[in-house]
């Protein structure tokens, strides 16, 4: 029952985060909101597993955490350099230290 309340609380937090993702105003706000939403999704999946009595959901939560991290890093790289096609080190050297 408390677990269900926890799920409800997470859903509220996620909807607040969606509001921030929609109103922006910059790319970085949106990505921050998406990343934070992903962290909450990981917790939600794990919690759902306990709610339904199937802790195997934790594996999915782990994979989601991985995907969430890779997504954020890839998006940051793309918005900074406008390409994903080349190694980060080479582009950082070309762009100078402060991009």
């Amino acid at each position: 029952m408390l677990v269900a309340a926890g799920v409800a609380g997470l859903v509220v937090a996620m909807s607040l985060m969606i509001v921030r993702a929609m109103i922006g105003p910059s790319h970085y706000d949106r990505i921050l909101a998406a990343n934070s939403f992903g962290t909450k999704t990981v917790l939600l999946i794990a919690l759902m597993g306990f709610l339904f009595g199937r802790p195997d959901f934790l594996d999915i939560a782990l994979v989601y955490a991985l995907i969430n991290f890779v997504t954020t890093i890839a998006l940051m790289k793309f918005f900074r350099y406008r390409t994903l096609a080349r190694p980060l080190g080479a582009m950082a050297r070309e762009a100078g230290k402060d991009g």
Binding site: L16, A33, K40
Partner: peptide, 9 residues
């Protein structure tokens, strides 16, 4: 989590 989301807003 809700507090964090409120802060982000």
């Amino acid at each position: 989590s809700i507090l964090g989301a409120v802060g982000v807003l």
